[in-house]
Design a protein around this nucleic acid. Sequence first.
DNA 1: AAATTTGGTTTATATTATAAACCGCTTTAT
DNA 2: ATAAAGCGGTTTATAATATAAACCAAATTT
Lengths: 93, 93
Amino acid sequence: MKELDPILHSQLRLAVMSILMNVEEADFVYLKEQTESTAGNLSVQLDKLATAGYITVTKSFVGKKTRTTCQVTQQGREAFEQYVEALKSYLNL
Amino acid sequence: MKELDPILHSQLRLAVMSILMNVEEADFVYLKEQTESTAGNLSVQLDKLATAGYITVTKSFVGKKTRTTCQVTQQGREAFEQYVEALKSYLNL
DNA sequence: AAATTTGGTTTATATTATAAACCGCTTTAT
DNA sequence: ATAAAGCGGTTTATAATATAAACCAAATTT
């Protein structure tokens, strides 16, 4: 049985990665809405993904307001693809 | 985003269910070998699956030795199928 | 008959996920 | 101008989970 990457095997982190795989970038507010998560939880999970090198997090200003945008990295893409392959062996897909 | 059933969203429990979905029944020793888990961990996770009603656990004797066999229940099958469907929406399958 | 193995269970510990509390800045209302 | 409320988060405390270590009874081997 293949290992399931524990960084990806978490509902919220997987949801975030799933969104980021289909989009150039997404900001904190958008991710929070789509995943229906609390800000605190999202913040922690984004950190973990960033620390793992799976996403980059960039802070900028839009007018006077801060904006935190996220992008998946190449490493993140590869990890996601691998995770999907590993899962398939569990799900009989 | 769909919920991912937390009882199934666990590597070891998912592995066990995955095995049981493809086989009439499987015993403790076999599951332990296939999943490469420790006995303690397996015991706990089988309990959780049983408590959730996803599997039945039956103890019997083979000669003088005890044997613990597991089978997936109808409820377990349905939960597994649903879990797969939910996951698909995350994985773009 | 002592030591080892088998087939587990129980309990303690480490890890993870989640929510609650907080913080600085901005906008709105008074 | 100032208090109150809102936005965009982060930090920290707590609850839940997974995992391994310790243990146990019966059977087998030496």
